[in-house]
Amino acid sequence: MCLAIPAKIVSIDNQRATVEVGGLTREASVVLLPDAGLGDYVLMHAGFAISLVDEDEALETIRLFEQLAGGSFLGEGPSETGLDGLSPGGTGLDGLSPAE
């Protein structure tokens, strides 16, 4: 429903930023994301930065994939891996992050 891709803020002046994607740069508005700063990765949608990309979370997810691809998961049960995101406590958003 909505295409948005990660872009890096390479300059910022008030509500206008220049963002970089794969060597291309473009103007973007950060009016919807006032906390965004130089060097941050943001999700770009229709010329606006709409969300910060959490680099730590991204790397954590990638690490999880690498472990899986490398076959280093010992347990066969899904909940032992963290991959299925099932929260041990059982309810709601406490278990939001599969990396936790």
């Binding site: 891709i5 872009a7 994607v21 794969g22 060597g23 291309l24």
Partner: peptide
């Protein structure tokens, strides 16, 4: 690379 980036964007 730049063409890919433009296409993603």
């Amino acid at each position: 690379g730049e063409v890919r980036a433009a296409c993603e964007l």
